[in-house]
Simulated assay, not measured.
Amino acid sequence: MTFEYLADPSGRPAWEGVLPGRPHPFFLEAGQGEHAKLFVDTFSVLLSGDETEGQFGVFTSTCPPGEIIPTHAHDQTHETFYVLEGAIRLYVQMPDGDQVSRLLGTGDFAFVPAGAEHAYRIEEPTRLMGVSSGGFERFFQTMGTKVDDPTADTPPFVPDGPRMGAAAQQFHMDFLPGFDWSRA
């Protein structure tokens, strides 16, 4: 629970119930969605596996420049990166074992299939849109902390090891020893 929920003893975020939780047409205004802070990034779920019968989810993230997100793989989750604005360096291990590094700028897109080991670093303030296999979009809330306002200047949220491990297990994800990405 974060400080902002002390005014509401239920501990529920203001956005609870904004997504219908079932396949049903709906609309979101700018800034709406389910929001979570994970490290220094703010993630907003716009569509979850609940609305798509587990097929896919859509989220955005607002990220300041920073450290590399550790090498990881999603056993059951396909993931996309679409840069709305900014720049991100994506590192991916290709099926033949080659390690590839690609700088993605505004309007660029990348696809990382399930099982592909990857990492990334935000190079400049960035807004991303991601689409993933249904259900994974809630990883950010599970490993991070829920927040009401995606634009508020909230402190970073750094999960402890047990929380990271539980989230990784729940979402079929492995954090891996780092590659030597300088070769990519």
Results as ranks from 00 to 15, higher is better:
Y82H: 14
L103N: 11
C63L: 07
T106M: 04
F56Q: 04
L103E: 15
D41S: 14
L84T: 06
S133K: 00
V100S: 10
G86A: 07
E53I: 00
L90K: 04
G31Q: 06
D41L: 01
L103M: 11
I88R: 02
G57A: 06
H74S: 06
I88K: 00
P95K: 03
T154R: 13
T142F: 15
G57Q: 03
T42Y: 02
G66I: 14
L84I: 13
D75F: 15
L84D: 09
R127T: 10
G33D: 10
Y5V: 09
D41W: 07
A73I: 00
C63W: 02
E51P: 10
R183V: 14
E16D: 13
F3D: 11
A184N: 03
P159F: 10
S10K: 00
D98E: 12
S61A: 12
D98T: 10
P125A: 03
S101E: 09
R102T: 12
L128P: 03
R127V: 15
E123F: 03
T52C: 06
I122L: 09
Y82F: 15
M173K: 08
W181E: 08
F27Y: 04
F136W: 02
L19W: 08
T62Y: 07
Y91F: 13
D148G: 15
A36V: 01
L19E: 06
F27Q: 11
G86H: 12
D96Y: 03
P9I: 01
E53G: 12
W181D: 09
P156V: 05
G144I: 01
Q55L: 14
G135P: 03
I68Q: 14
V100G: 07
P162G: 11
S132D: 08
L19I: 05
R12A: 13
T71K: 14
S44W: 00
Y5F: 15
F171S: 04
G135M: 01
F140C: 08
G21E: 05
R127C: 10
Q32V: 08
D148R: 08
S182V: 09
W181R: 13
F157I: 06
A168N: 11
L38R: 00
C63E: 12
R22M: 03
G134A: 05
V131G: 03
D180K: 09
Q170K: 15
P25F: 00
E34Y: 08
P13Q: 03
G86F: 04
G144Q: 03
A114S: 15
G86D: 07
G49C: 11
M94L: 13
D98P: 00
F111V: 11
R102L: 13
V131S: 02
E29A: 13
F39D: 04
P65K: 13
P113M: 14
P70N: 07
G130S: 02
P150I: 06
Q55H: 15
F3Y: 10
T52Q: 01
T126S: 12
I68M: 15
L47E: 07
A168Q: 09
Q55Y: 02
P177W: 05
T77F: 14
P159G: 06
F111T: 10
E117I: 07
Y5M: 10
I69R: 11
P64S: 09
R102V: 10
H72F: 09
S133N: 02
R183K: 09
G66K: 08
E117A: 12
T62V: 07
Y5G: 01
D75L: 13
D41T: 15
T2H: 11
V45G: 01
G178V: 05
S48P: 05
Q141V: 06
E79R: 07
E67C: 02
